[in-house]
Amino acid sequence: MADEAKGGALEFHPMDQFIVEPLFGGDTIHWYTPTNVTLWMFLTVLAITAMLVLGTRGRAIVPSRAQSVAELAYGFVYKMVEDVAGKDAVKFFPYIFTLFLFIIFANFLGLIPMAFTTTSHIAVTAVMALAVFLTVTVVGFVKNGASFLSLFWVSSAPAAIRPVLAVIEVISYFVRPVSHSVRLAGAMMAGHAVVKVFAGFAAIAAIAPLSIVAVVAIYGLEVLVSAIQAYVFTILTCVYLKDALHPHH
């Protein structure tokens, strides 16, 4: 629909980069079909393995470059979990670290030209956000029992408006997985689409230099956004986890 309107000499297909395609031909995509999703997720696993397993191969007291990057990532997320979610959240650290590594590596791998950004798909981010949401809810009820519901009952507010606040709190609680997933997917999709749109303008010779400069600038912004979105997803996971472990404000 959009293409009909633009048409002509300028060919904009900013969303084509997000199409899921079977890797080895064929039209139908079954749940087990190896697709470009599979390829880029596999590359993500490969990159994580390279950094965290091959990088720390030396187990050196004085770390090599790769090892210190791995240790930095470990320390960064560990400290985040400890500071934001509390000391008793440390046993969830492997899960949170898994999410963080997957998101940041998928984001950065998606920045490679011609790459497929797995985290730009709402299906991917929604699964992660829902997993976090369900885990947090289950942990909250298991740890605190019914007193977990006090999360919605703001005891510091005047009694009259507490029911209203409770409704708002419940709604905001259930909107969490939506905003959690849409934020990441939306930021990734928007950035990549904008890069593509600016790249499409390069077809016009007169504004090609400008468009290339713009692509470079947006690309730089995207590098920043990739890291920040991974950080934000992780820290929000920690915040939700803190709510589950300590629901009393």
Binding site: I19, V20, I29, W31
Partner: peptide, 16 residues
Amino acid sequence: LPQLDFSTFPNQIFWL
């Protein structure tokens, strides 16, 4: 929008 092509969801979710 490729993101809303629900036929690819099982595939993505499985591989994820």
